[in-house]
């Protein structure tokens, strides 16, 4: 016993070394055992605190590279967004074309779907730009409608784009009538509120009521008959023979997006006949 104690005392340092070696080896080989002790990994509070403080400083060193990465990534994402938007628009165009309610008024007319890519409502004379042009079968003089009503008429056509005169432009006069009657007048926008236009040259004897619907006459080949334009909201004034009334337009010009451009298959024929009549007169 005494010998054992002496032995232990004499070689105590070696014993301690052996114990530490055994502990280390145990830690080394039993991966699972040490993973149970979070404090033996860098996940413990002290090292997390140290590393947190260090990264507060060192993170600045990578800012430039990080920025570049982010910019690159950003550019990629922006590209993707543009592409997705384009796809979305194409799909919408298809769906919209398939599902949009076609009024009987459109019989005999065909149409081209288009997106409004530029629009104004606040200028004295407003114009629209469409993303379809002569390549898509658009020609000057074609009418433009959206799901709510009249939008404008095409004036200048490029290969893949077209400029249109908005209904909100005093140069554009539209022949309209009170729905259910045959009394017609001329609709014009006089500036100001983009929701209100004036229907002029109505005969005095017509009985009109607030809320009556105003539709196109179909006297020109630009728009078919019966497309809704707006509703009567009030008097605008009168002279000897005619009255003028304020019309609230059904088209929301602030939100014109997808439109259809109306093609009249018989336009050429009709125009030439009307010109012949004018000549003979």
């Amino acid at each position: 016993m005494r010998n054992l104690l002496n032995f232990l005392l004499r070689y105590s340092a070696w014993m301690v070394a052996a114990i530490y070696v055994v502990i280390s080896v145990l830690l080394l080989v039993s991966e699972n055992a040490y993973q149970r002790h979070a404090w033996l990994t860098s996940a413990n509070g002290v090292s997390a605190w140290v590393y947190g403080g260090v990264s507060k400083v060192t993170s600045y060193f990578n800012l430039k590279a990080n920025n570049e990465d982010l910019m690159t990534r950003n550019a990629l994402l922006e590209d993707e967004i543009v592409q997705l938007k384009q796809q979305l628009r194409d799909i919408k165009l298809q769906m919209y074309g398939d599902s949009m309610k076609v009024t009987p008024a459109f019989d005999g007319y065909s149409y081209v779907m288009a997106n409004v890519i530029n629009n104004s409502v606040s200028r004295p004379k407003n114009y629209l730009t469409l993303d379809r042009g002569s390549a898509d079968g658009i020609a000057p003089g074609m009418g433009i409608v959206d799901q709510n009503g009249i939008v404008g008429v095409v004036s200048v056509v490029g290969r893949h784009s077209a400029r249109a005169i908005s209904l909100l432009n005093p140069d554009f006069r539209l022949s309209c009538k009170v729905k259910g009657t045959d009394f017609f007048g001329s609709l014009v926008w006089e500036g100001g509120d983009p929701a209100i236009a004036v229907l002029e040259e109505l005969p005095r004897h017509v009985r009109l009521h607030r809320g009556d619907t105003i539709v196109t006459t179909g006297y020109s080949s630009v728009f078919p008959e019966g497309i809704i334009v707006g509703t009567i909201v009030g008097d605008h004034g009168a002279n000897n023979n005619f009255v003028a009334i304020d019309i609230r337009l059904t088209t929301d010009f602030n939100r014109v997006g997808m439109v259809r451009v109306i093609r009249d298959a018989n336009k050429a024929e009709r125009d030439s006949i009307e010109q012949d009549i004018e000549k003979t007169e």
Binding site: V25, L27, V29, E31, L40, N44, V50
Partner: peptide
């Protein structure tokens, strides 16, 4: 070891080095 997530390696080597 705790800081570098190498449980046992440095403690073993340090003990032997000592």
């Amino acid at each position: 070891d705790i800081f570098s997530d190498t449980a046992g390696m440095n403690s073993l080597a340090c003990t032997l080095l000592c």
